[in-house]
Protein backbone atom coordinates (compact mmCIF):
# COMPACT_ATOMS: atom_id res chain seq x y z
CA UNK A 1 0.00 0.00 0.00
CA UNK A 2 1.45 3.32 -0.96
CA UNK A 3 1.63 6.03 1.62
CA UNK A 4 -1.23 8.46 1.44
CA UNK A 5 0.81 11.38 0.29
CA UNK A 6 -0.44 14.86 0.99
CA UNK A 7 -1.43 16.21 -2.44
CA UNK A 8 0.69 19.24 -3.11
CA UNK A 9 -1.00 21.75 -5.35
CA UNK A 10 1.42 23.24 -7.80
CA UNK A 11 1.77 26.98 -7.73
CA UNK A 12 -0.36 27.68 -10.79
CA UNK A 13 -3.12 25.29 -9.79
CA UNK A 14 -5.63 26.77 -7.37
CA UNK A 15 -7.76 23.94 -5.93
CA UNK A 16 -11.38 24.10 -7.04
CA UNK A 17 -12.29 22.02 -4.02
CA UNK A 18 -10.42 20.62 -1.12
CA UNK A 19 -11.09 18.53 1.95
CA UNK A 20 -9.09 18.14 5.12
CA UNK A 21 -9.52 15.23 7.53
CA UNK A 22 -12.83 14.53 5.87
CA UNK A 23 -14.60 11.77 7.78
CA UNK A 24 -18.02 10.34 7.08
CA UNK A 25 -19.56 7.73 9.29
CA UNK A 26 -22.98 6.18 8.78
CA UNK A 27 -24.99 4.73 11.61
CA UNK A 28 -23.92 7.21 14.30
CA UNK A 29 -21.79 5.95 17.16
CA UNK A 30 -23.31 2.51 17.31
CA UNK A 31 -21.35 -0.65 16.84
CA UNK A 32 -22.69 -1.16 13.37
CA UNK A 33 -21.45 2.27 12.29
CA UNK A 34 -19.73 2.18 8.93
CA UNK A 35 -16.90 4.53 8.20
CA UNK A 36 -17.22 5.53 4.56
CA UNK A 37 -14.48 8.14 4.62
CA UNK A 38 -11.68 8.13 7.13
CA UNK A 39 -9.81 11.43 7.56
CA UNK A 40 -9.33 12.02 3.86
CA UNK A 41 -7.32 14.99 2.61
CA UNK A 42 -7.92 15.72 -1.03
CA UNK A 43 -7.53 18.56 -3.53
CA UNK A 44 -9.44 18.86 -6.78
CA UNK A 45 -7.37 21.13 -8.94
CA UNK A 46 -8.97 23.80 -11.05
CA UNK A 47 -8.89 23.51 -14.80
CA UNK A 48 -8.22 19.82 -14.69
CA UNK A 49 -10.05 16.57 -15.18
CA UNK A 50 -9.80 14.49 -12.03
CA UNK A 51 -11.02 10.92 -11.74
CA UNK A 52 -11.84 9.30 -8.42
CA UNK A 53 -11.41 5.54 -8.56
CA UNK A 54 -11.87 2.70 -6.23
CA UNK A 55 -13.62 -0.59 -5.80
CA UNK A 56 -17.25 -0.78 -4.68
CA UNK A 57 -17.63 0.49 -1.14
CA UNK A 58 -14.37 2.39 -1.21
CA UNK A 59 -16.17 5.64 -0.44
CA UNK A 60 -15.64 7.32 -3.79
CA UNK A 61 -19.27 8.33 -4.25
CA UNK A 62 -19.50 9.51 -0.66
CA UNK A 63 -16.40 11.65 -1.20
CA UNK A 64 -18.02 13.27 -4.19
CA UNK A 65 -21.31 13.85 -2.37
CA UNK A 66 -19.48 15.51 0.49
CA UNK A 67 -17.37 17.68 -1.78
CA UNK A 68 -20.48 18.75 -3.69
CA UNK A 69 -22.46 19.65 -0.61
CA UNK A 70 -24.98 16.92 -1.21
CA UNK A 71 -24.14 15.13 2.00
CA UNK A 72 -23.10 16.30 5.44
CA UNK A 73 -19.75 15.33 6.90
CA UNK A 74 -19.14 13.70 10.26
CA UNK A 75 -15.95 15.65 10.85
CA UNK A 76 -13.28 17.47 8.90
CA UNK A 77 -13.64 20.46 6.61
CA UNK A 78 -14.52 20.96 2.99
CA UNK A 79 -13.95 24.02 0.83
CA UNK A 80 -15.36 24.81 -2.51
CA UNK A 81 -13.06 27.42 -3.98
CA UNK A 82 -12.43 29.78 -1.07
CA UNK A 83 -15.61 29.10 0.81
CA UNK A 84 -15.89 26.48 3.45
CA UNK A 85 -19.08 24.52 2.96
CA UNK A 86 -19.00 22.20 5.95
CA UNK A 87 -20.89 24.66 8.11
CA UNK A 88 -23.48 25.74 5.58
CA UNK A 89 -27.20 25.16 6.02
CA UNK A 90 -29.53 23.67 3.49
CA UNK A 91 -30.46 27.00 1.95
CA UNK A 92 -26.83 28.02 1.31
CA UNK A 93 -25.91 24.57 0.08
CA UNK A 94 -28.81 24.64 -2.34
CA UNK A 95 -27.70 28.00 -3.65
CA UNK A 96 -24.11 26.77 -3.86
CA UNK A 97 -25.11 23.73 -5.89
CA UNK A 98 -27.24 25.86 -8.10
CA UNK A 99 -24.67 28.56 -8.78
CA UNK A 100 -21.27 27.01 -8.40
CA UNK A 101 -21.50 23.29 -9.06
CA UNK A 102 -22.62 21.23 -12.01
CA UNK A 103 -23.79 17.62 -11.82
CA UNK A 104 -23.88 14.68 -14.19
CA UNK A 105 -25.41 11.56 -12.64
CA UNK A 106 -25.29 7.98 -13.77
CA UNK A 107 -28.92 8.02 -14.82
CA UNK A 108 -32.01 10.08 -14.49
CA UNK A 109 -30.33 13.36 -15.20
CA UNK A 110 -33.12 15.03 -17.10
CA UNK A 111 -36.64 16.10 -16.35
CA UNK A 112 -38.87 14.12 -18.70
CA UNK A 113 -41.34 16.99 -18.99
CA UNK A 114 -38.78 19.48 -20.29
CA UNK A 115 -37.13 19.58 -23.70
CA UNK A 116 -33.38 19.12 -23.99
CA UNK A 117 -32.93 22.87 -24.33
CA UNK A 118 -35.04 23.57 -21.25
CA UNK A 119 -33.17 20.93 -19.29
CA UNK A 120 -29.89 22.60 -20.16
CA UNK A 121 -30.92 25.96 -18.74
CA UNK A 122 -32.86 24.45 -15.81
CA UNK A 123 -30.46 25.50 -13.00
CA UNK A 124 -30.46 29.10 -14.25
CA UNK A 125 -34.25 29.02 -14.58
CA UNK A 126 -34.54 27.75 -11.05
CA UNK A 127 -32.28 30.54 -9.91
CA UNK A 128 -34.32 33.00 -11.89
CA UNK A 129 -31.22 34.08 -13.82
CA UNK A 130 -30.95 34.82 -17.49
CA UNK A 131 -28.54 32.29 -19.06
CA UNK A 132 -25.43 33.63 -20.73
CA UNK A 133 -26.75 32.96 -24.23
CA UNK A 134 -23.39 33.08 -26.00
CA UNK A 135 -21.83 30.64 -23.56
CA UNK A 136 -24.80 28.27 -23.66
CA UNK A 137 -24.71 28.33 -27.45
CA UNK A 138 -21.00 27.60 -27.38
CA UNK A 139 -21.56 24.66 -25.03
CA UNK A 140 -24.38 23.34 -27.20
CA UNK A 141 -22.30 23.66 -30.36
CA UNK A 142 -19.27 22.11 -28.74
CA UNK A 143 -21.28 19.13 -27.52
CA UNK A 144 -23.03 18.84 -30.89
CA UNK A 145 -26.55 19.15 -29.50
CA UNK A 146 -27.77 21.90 -31.81
CA UNK A 147 -30.37 19.77 -33.55
CA UNK A 148 -31.65 18.07 -30.41
CA UNK A 149 -32.80 21.04 -28.34
CA UNK A 150 -36.51 20.60 -28.99
CA UNK A 151 -36.52 16.90 -28.22
CA UNK A 152 -37.87 15.44 -25.02
CA UNK A 153 -35.51 13.13 -23.09
CA UNK A 154 -37.63 10.13 -24.04
CA UNK A 155 -36.85 10.88 -27.69
CA UNK A 156 -33.08 10.81 -27.11
CA UNK A 157 -30.69 7.88 -26.81
CA UNK A 158 -28.92 7.24 -23.53
CA UNK A 159 -25.71 8.80 -24.84
CA UNK A 160 -27.52 11.84 -26.08
CA UNK A 161 -29.25 12.20 -22.73
CA UNK A 162 -25.91 12.16 -20.94
CA UNK A 163 -24.56 14.75 -23.35
CA UNK A 164 -27.53 16.97 -22.54
CA UNK A 165 -26.74 16.40 -18.87
CA UNK A 166 -23.13 17.47 -19.53
CA UNK A 167 -24.36 20.55 -21.31
CA UNK A 168 -26.61 21.38 -18.36
CA UNK A 169 -23.70 20.99 -15.98
CA UNK A 170 -21.62 23.30 -18.13
CA UNK A 171 -24.30 25.86 -18.92
CA UNK A 172 -24.09 27.79 -15.69
CA UNK A 173 -20.29 27.89 -16.01
CA UNK A 174 -19.79 26.32 -12.56
CA UNK A 175 -16.53 26.26 -10.63
CA UNK A 176 -16.65 22.52 -10.58
CA UNK A 177 -18.52 19.77 -12.37
CA UNK A 178 -19.14 16.52 -10.56
CA UNK A 179 -19.80 13.47 -12.67
CA UNK A 180 -20.96 10.36 -10.82
CA UNK A 181 -20.39 7.28 -13.00
CA UNK A 182 -21.58 9.24 -16.04
CA UNK A 183 -20.87 6.31 -18.34
CA UNK A 184 -22.19 3.62 -16.02
CA UNK A 185 -25.42 3.16 -17.92
CA UNK A 186 -24.05 3.55 -21.44
CA UNK A 187 -22.64 1.25 -24.03
CA UNK A 188 -18.92 1.69 -24.68
CA UNK A 189 -19.33 3.89 -27.74
CA UNK A 190 -21.77 6.28 -26.10
CA UNK A 191 -19.62 6.21 -22.96
CA UNK A 192 -16.59 7.17 -24.95
CA UNK A 193 -18.48 10.04 -26.47
CA UNK A 194 -19.46 11.41 -23.07
CA UNK A 195 -15.90 11.13 -21.80
CA UNK A 196 -14.69 13.03 -24.84
CA UNK A 197 -17.22 15.73 -24.06
CA UNK A 198 -15.94 16.05 -20.52
CA UNK A 199 -12.43 16.20 -21.88
CA UNK A 200 -13.45 18.93 -24.26
CA UNK A 201 -15.10 20.80 -21.41
CA UNK A 202 -11.79 20.90 -19.60
CA UNK A 203 -9.55 21.54 -22.60
CA UNK A 204 -11.56 23.86 -24.76
CA UNK A 205 -14.07 25.40 -22.33
CA UNK A 206 -11.59 25.62 -19.48
CA UNK A 207 -13.78 23.85 -16.94
CA UNK A 208 -12.96 21.71 -13.91
CA UNK A 209 -14.34 18.18 -13.79
CA UNK A 210 -14.30 15.61 -11.01
CA UNK A 211 -15.54 12.20 -12.07
CA UNK A 212 -16.28 9.15 -9.99
CA UNK A 213 -15.84 5.90 -11.90
CA UNK A 214 -14.84 2.31 -11.45
CA UNK A 215 -13.90 1.89 -15.09
CA UNK A 216 -10.13 2.18 -15.75
CA UNK A 217 -10.77 3.04 -19.39
CA UNK A 218 -12.91 5.97 -18.28
CA UNK A 219 -10.35 7.09 -15.73
CA UNK A 220 -7.72 7.10 -18.48
CA UNK A 221 -9.42 10.18 -19.96
CA UNK A 222 -8.60 12.18 -16.83
CA UNK A 223 -5.51 14.24 -16.10
CA UNK A 224 -5.23 12.96 -12.63
CA UNK A 225 -6.56 9.90 -10.81
CA UNK A 226 -7.23 9.55 -7.09
CA UNK A 227 -7.53 6.00 -5.73
CA UNK A 228 -9.72 5.29 -2.75
CA UNK A 229 -9.94 2.11 -0.74
CA UNK A 230 -11.73 1.49 2.54
CA UNK A 231 -12.46 5.17 2.91
CA UNK A 232 -8.88 6.29 2.59
CA UNK A 233 -7.01 7.98 -0.19
CA UNK A 234 -4.42 5.35 -1.06
CA UNK A 235 -2.81 6.45 -4.29
CA UNK A 236 -2.82 8.92 -7.12
CA UNK A 237 -1.62 9.05 -10.65
CA UNK A 238 -0.81 11.78 -13.19
CA UNK A 239 -1.61 11.41 -16.89
CA UNK A 240 -2.97 7.90 -16.54
CA UNK A 241 -3.38 5.27 -19.17
CA UNK A 242 -5.95 2.51 -18.92
CA UNK A 243 -3.27 -0.12 -18.42
CA UNK A 244 -1.58 1.64 -15.53
CA UNK A 245 -4.90 2.38 -13.86
CA UNK A 246 -5.98 -1.22 -14.25
CA UNK A 247 -2.68 -2.32 -12.76
CA UNK A 248 -3.16 -0.10 -9.69
CA UNK A 249 -6.73 -1.19 -9.31
CA UNK A 250 -5.71 -4.82 -9.30
CA UNK A 251 -3.40 -4.10 -6.44
CA UNK A 252 -6.23 -2.43 -4.53
CA UNK A 253 -8.47 -5.38 -5.14
CA UNK A 254 -6.16 -7.72 -3.31
CA UNK A 255 -8.15 -9.09 -0.39
CA UNK A 256 -7.76 -6.78 2.55
CA UNK A 257 -5.71 -7.82 5.50
CA UNK A 258 -3.53 -10.16 3.47
Amino acid sequence: MTTAAQPQPSADERPAARARLLTKRYGGDSEVAVTALDAVDVDINAGRFTAVMGPSGSGKSTLMHCLAGLDSVTSGRVWLGDSEITSLGDRELTRLRRDRVGFVFQSFNLLPTLTAGENITLPMDIAGRRPDRAWVDEVITTLGLGDRLRHRPAQLSGGQQQRVACARALASRPELIFADEPTGNLDSRSGLEVLRQLRVAVDRLDQTVAMVTHDPAAAAHADHVLFLADGRLVDELEDPTAEVVLERMKRLDVPRGS
Binding site: R91, T94, R95, F103, L111, I126
Partner: peptide, 16 residues
Amino acid sequence: TRELGMLRAVGMSRRQ
Protein backbone atom coordinates in the same frame (compact mmCIF):
# COMPACT_ATOMS: atom_id res chain seq x y z
CA THR B 1 -38.48 10.71 -6.06
CA ARG B 2 -35.39 10.64 -8.24
CA GLU B 3 -36.54 13.51 -10.36
CA LEU B 4 -37.15 15.63 -7.30
CA GLY B 5 -33.76 14.63 -5.95
CA MET B 6 -32.14 15.68 -9.19
CA LEU B 7 -33.90 19.03 -9.01
CA ARG B 8 -32.63 19.51 -5.48
CA ALA B 9 -29.14 18.50 -6.57
CA VAL B 10 -29.02 21.07 -9.34
CA GLY B 11 -30.11 23.78 -6.98
CA MET B 12 -33.85 23.90 -6.45
CA SER B 13 -34.64 25.08 -2.96
CA ARG B 14 -37.11 23.33 -0.68
CA ARG B 15 -39.40 26.30 -0.98
CA GLN B 16 -39.38 26.12 -4.75
